[in-house]
Design a protein around this nucleic acid. Structure first.
Lengths: 348, 348
DNA sequence: TTGTACGCGTTATCAC
DNA sequence: GTGATAACGCGTACAA
């Protein structure tokens, strides 16, 4: 049924040690035997059994990627998807493969706070782990201790707060402020800033900074709870605040939401950018060029972050020197036509 | 270092056989020993080694999902992403996990046409396989023969043509025609139909049907090659055909492209649907409600297709009876505001 | 250069 | 109900 190293050895008329040596190039073997063994391997469709190999080598050639299915599915967020794309790209070029470990919502209640990846780690199914999400929620202290004791390779994607794993991150708070300052520089002082509810904590930090601004700016932060029909919310907000004459600019948390907002503007005959300027966060390079008008964006290079995370992990696995334990990515602001310079103060 | 069944047995003062029995509930064990062993397992953080287990059981609890990175990345296509979402959802609820096997473009030249999943199959890394993409390109005859000889569980997502794997599919050709017939019923006879280049073969089949229509319909099929700036193409097409007065309706291959097209319409002051009706294929439930105007869509339930594929595979693995070897999904057409009934023939 | 024999951590089949 | 012990397929020290 299943073909083993014994079958190959028998077919080629050598011992299993010789076959193994050829397989792993672990020692010199006479050319004739090499040829014979390779022929036998071809003929029998031999491929070393990964279980037997793993049992000896203690490595799975597999890395785990752990994410949370929260109010949004992992596959509903362009950020997560771009991360996965980057990770996948790097791993495909090495001969590692990746298993996606997705935690269902509310796991901390169900499983006593034990994240699903722990089983993978303990049972040696993965050699390393990439985490994305709220670190403290994803890793209770006891699990963290266990990982440290084993010296298990972990890369965390996100801002590292208490722990000291390898990590890759972009300063969310900083780039929120960057957007707002760009708008301020263009004379926009009344702004609505939409954010997804997951970022509530960050938004609080942003607000604590903008509250200190003394130029009369009024930034209205609005949290988007998924599942709600955001279009309806936008419509109400625009009717109230923009048609009311105060707001001159709006920030959207991603490309899809920006598109929706553009649609609402269109519906309400609010010209962009003449009556309302718009900026969006985006995770896919250049997608913002597809809209009309093309969107000014803050591009967060999630693909690159994912790729970096995977590279960092692979270096760690190879035992390479790792000069930097954390890599910061700076989002890039690109000015396009959706933002207008305010020359004179708006009068309703 | 690593804790094995021997350690647990020693700690609990029993033999490894007893530990194994408790682990797998494979025989009755006295309650006292059960308690002692469970305590020992807790204390030592024991988790059975998957390699040793797999070596004996010959199963990996892992299923492979194979896709092609063509001109578009797997993660750039909402169709693929929704498939993955569905597969993931099902597998997460069982205790199977999934590894994503992505083939880089041009593999058939590089590797002599041997798809990457073959190694996973031969080395017993996966118990089953889900395939999505052009079947003949993804599976040369020799590989197919090998899979059949092993009786390896495979589910193919897509229209099955020559082979007889389990499969899940939606008739692409049929639903193209469905869209066109909906438009025809509303009096649209001059239509541009955009499709992604991957679907070229299907489009040919669609065309061979529409060519037989005797009502003077003129359907212009345009292939979208990714990497091109589709927005520019749309702009030219609209200026030429719509402003020229012939075309009254347009079909878009997905939500993103529809959004782009809506932007172009907006830019060129072509009102939708008054001057141009629009229909889009979509893979995410309800996303088309977010645009303005809300899009009439043909919803292809890719999540459900992915979920079905995973379920089919799990049934196959469990040895359940499988009544139907193929499951057809029917896309659902939803009329929204982006299509207008043509009352009188357009006069330029 | 080559082959033998043992260990890796399980499960399963025996005797007891 | 329980405990030895033989597979499972591979890598490798050691002997030849």
């Amino acid at each position: 049924m299943s073909v083993s190293i014994y079958d190959v050895a028998a077919e080629a008329g050598v011992s299993i040690a010789t076959v193994s040596r050829i397989l792993n190039k672990s020692a010199a073997v006479s050319p004739k035997k090499v040829a014979a063994v390779q022929a036998a391997m071809e003929k029998l469709h031999f491929e070393p059994n990964q279980f037997a190999r793993g049992l000896v080598n203690k490595q799975a050639n597999m890395i785990g990627v752990y994410m949370l299915d929260g109010d949004v599915s992992v596959f509903d967020s362009t950020y997560s998807i771009e991360l996965l794309k980057g990770i996948q790209r790097v791993l495909t070029y090495q001969d590692k493969c990746m298993t996606l470990i997705v935690e269902r919502p509310g796991f901390y209640k169900r499983a006593g706070g034990i994240p699903a990846y722990r089983e993978y780690v303990r049972s040696k199914r993965i050699d390393g782990l990439i985490l994305n999400g709220p670190l403290r929620a994803m890793m209770p202290p006891e699990v963290e201790r266990e990982l440290r004791e084993m010296d298990f390779p972990v890369v965390y994607i996100g801002r590292q707060e208490e722990s000291e794993f390898l990590n890759v991150y972009a300063h969310y708070v900083e780039y929120c402020l960057e957007i707002l300052e760009h708008l301020r520089a263009k004379g926009h002082t009344n702004i609505i800033y939409y954010a997804i509810s997951m970022h509530e904590n960050y938004i609080r930090q942003v607000k604590s900074v903008t509250d200190t601004w003394q130029d009369g700016s009024r930034i209205c932060f609005r949290l988007l709870h998924t599942g709600e029909m955001s279009r309806e919310q936008y419509k109400k907000d625009l009717q109230k605040y923009v048609c009311g004459g105060e707001i001159t600019a709006v920030c959207m948390p991603d490309y899809d939401q920006a598109v929706t907002m553009l649609g609402v503007c269109n519906e309400l005959h609010i010209p962009v950018p003449d009556r309302l300027s718009m900026v969006a966060v985006t995770h896919r390079m250049d997608e913002a060029k597809q809209t009309y008008p093309p969107l000014s964006t803050l591009y967060v290079p999630a693909v690159d972050m994912g790729a970096s995370a995977a590279e960092l992990l692979l270096h760690r696995l190879n035992g390479d020197d790792i000069p930097e334990t954390g890599i910061e990515y700076k989002p890039r602001y690109t000015e396009r036509e959706s933002v207008k310079e305010m020359t004179a103060p708006m009068t309703p």
